[in-house]
């Protein structure tokens, strides 16, 4: 836990930026790194920002100096005609405008693009212990664990302190997988599979969001990465692998029939039943998820009910039509889905 250091940095930022920094330690903060990759990037940023303030200070200083000398004749030893101080100005331009930037930028280039980049580039498949596939859809994330039958949506569970290889693909347009507190972003490109490494330091919940504009509901295409202790992760994965269990009540039983005979099953899959649609998320363990609609609403029975009735209101343009269900049928459907732990 390095919260004190974060606080110090937030404080530095506050002093330098002269703007109060709300949300330090927030959940999608590139400056609150929770992995060695994100930490390298954040450190790089703090150094660059320090340098940037010095550079800006230099130029502002020169401008203020000229303002102090305003309305005065030019100065310099070689005052000739209207080119005062020509020689010294040339030296200044060559030193400040050519020599200094070459030195600064070469350093930055070597540090960031030859060294730091090694930690953030795509990992070799031999260095990771687990592979997760993330597939971008308009506008949600499908998550698969190759080698298992587990399929979930809009949340990624990974074990702590374990390098994880995340393969990203797209089912439609270009999206970008980005969990800033864990690593840099990577785009999902049609016909390609890209790779990024996640290696979280500690247990927690990290927010991620689609970073490449992908259409109408680009704003509502977020996800959570849950970092669990390795043992808890294994338990979670085993649970997710299981097919659906038989409904526990008569109401849920009715809901299941409604789901399977009605329009739901043409778009959603529930493993262990006949529902195998692939338009929307796999719902086998939907009740275990934190949110609905890629973090559009939280996942409580009330929210679920509203989502089924009016998802077009919460997330206009999403692929799921508003479902016209009377009270009793809706109760049954919600009871069934709430049972899918």
């Amino acid at each position: 836990m390095n919260a004190p250091r974060e606080d110090r940095r937030c404080l530095a930022f506050l002093v330098l930026a002269v703007v109060p920094l709300a949300g330090c330690g927030g959940s999608q903060n590139a400056l609150a790194p929770e992995s060695h990759q994100a930490r390298d990037i954040a450190t790089l940023f703090w150094w660059m920002m320090g340098g940037a303030w010095v550079g800006l200070g230099l130029v502002v200083g020169l401008l203020l100096w000229s303002w102090k000398r305003r309305n005065r004749r030019g100065f310099g030893r070689d005052v000739e005609g209207d080119k005062p101080g020509e020689k010294r100005s040339w030296y200044a331009v060559v030193v400040l405008g050519i020599v200094m930037p070459i030195a600064v930028i070469s350093t930055l280039f070597v540090v960031s693009d030859l060294f730091v980049i090694k930690t953030t580039q795509a990992p070799a498949s031999t260095t990771t212990k687990l592979t997760v596939q993330v597939i971008g859809h308009q506008w949600w994330w499908e998550v698969r664990y190759p080698g298992t039958t587990a399929v979930t949506a809009n949340e990624l569970h990974i074990p702590a302190r374990t390098p994880v290889r995340v393969e990203v693909k797209t089912a439609d347009v270009i999206h970008s997988f980005w969990v800033p507190e864990l690593n840099r972003k990577i785009d999902t490109i049609p016909g390609r599979s890209n790779v990024v490494e996640l290696d979280a330091d500690q247990v927690g919940r990290y927010r991620g969001q689609c970073a490449e504009f992908c259409g109408l509901q680009h704003a509502h295409m977020a996800m959570y990465v849950f970092v669990d202790e390795p043992s808890a992760f294994r338990r979670w994965l085993a649970q997710q692998e299981k097919p659906v269990e038989a409904p526990s009540s008569a109401l849920a039983e009715r809901g299941a029939r409604l789901f399977l005979d009605g329009p739901c099953s043409s778009c959603h899959a529930i493993r262990g039943t006949d529902a195998d649609g692939y338009v929307g998320p796999d719902l086998t363990h939907v009740a275990s998820r934190a949110t609905l609609g890629a973090l559009t609403v939280s996942n409580t029975p009330d929210d679920l009910r509203q989502w089924i009735l009016h998802s077009q209101q919460a997330k206009p343009g999403n692929q799921m039509p508003d479902f016209n269900a009377s009270g009793a049928r809706l109760d049954a459907l919600v009871a069934f889905l709430e049972g899918l732990k």
Binding site: N71, V93, G97, D113
Partner: peptide
């Protein structure tokens, strides 16, 4: 491409400091 991006900085800094030095050594009327 990062190296090329680094190179493009230099013509920009040349101009910035040439402007600044003109401000300082001239008869600046703001």
């Amino acid at each position: 491409f990062a190296a090329a991006t680094a190179m493009v900085v230099i013509p920009s800094t040349i101009q910035v400091f040439a402007w600044c030095m003109s401000f300082i050594t001239g008869f600046a009327r703001f």
